[in-house]
Design a protein around this nucleic acid. Structure first.
Lengths: 118, 118
DNA sequence: TGAACATGTGAATACACATTCATTTTTGGA
DNA sequence: TCCAAAAATGAATGTGTATTCACATGTTCA
């Protein structure tokens, strides 16, 4: 509880320490949040779903999701930095595909949650 | 490909339509992105991990993750709106816990990915 | 009922980030 | 080697949002 001039009591002081041990390290916490953050954008999600089953070049993705190749390229760069996509050059085109088997699972679960409630 | 004055050709025109059918609806896409987005923040992740196994009141969470109760309250509100946490009042305290069985799985997979590479 | 504590809330500030535009790099073909 | 296409890049702009601060609400207990 950082600098705060109210009068808060700690309710479960004894257990707090144990719970704290269950929280991942700041390093891992940051990595996880980065993964979620980068997937938390409709444009990037569309890109990811575009290349879920078939590799595609930047130009095709832009056409498919109705945006500019530049925007797609910027986002693919971010996705690549987090090792979520891989690229393969073939002539002038560069083909992108999912780099990670975890990503599909994440999509499945998130979609379940989205469809579940309400 | 929205208004763009370059000269981009569509490489795989025939398959684009089929791939497009595999992309979730804008509505579901938005829901999924909201879930990922809200988990894409270290502070919120800490909150989620805090109440992963045991319910805690706002004050305890604030103590545990070293921030102010106000900040925690704001974030819990966001998390609750997406039905990721539930609350239960007991006297003056309000106890929060995970509302969704999917969330733990998401954490596991994301952590795997984070630890996997490099 | 009123004082004290736990939490919620609204506005404001500061920061992060997606898109756009202009330009550059790389490749293939003439 | 020169031109055009595909993609990458950098800077600028506009938008969204986390935190902070001040205050409001709701609860317990004397």
């Amino acid at each position: 509880m950082r600098e705060f001039n109210g009068e808060y009591k700690i309710i479960h002081e004894t257990t707090l320490h144990d719970i704290g041990d269950g929280i991942p390290s700041d390093e891992n916490l940051l990595k996880i949040s980065e993964i979620f953050k980068i997937l938390g954008d409709p444009t990037r999600l569309k890109i990811m779903f575009s290349i879920l089953k078939t590799e595609l070049c930047v130009c095709d993705i832009a056409e498919l999701i109705d945006t500019t190749p530049s925007a797609v390229s910027h986002q693919l760069r971010n996705l690549k930095q987090l090792r979520l996509v891989t690229s393969r050059r073939s002539g002038k085109e560069i083909y992108y595909s999912l780099a990670d088997e975890h990503v599909e699972k994440l999509f499945e679960i998130a979609l379940e949650h989205a469809e579940d409630g309400k």
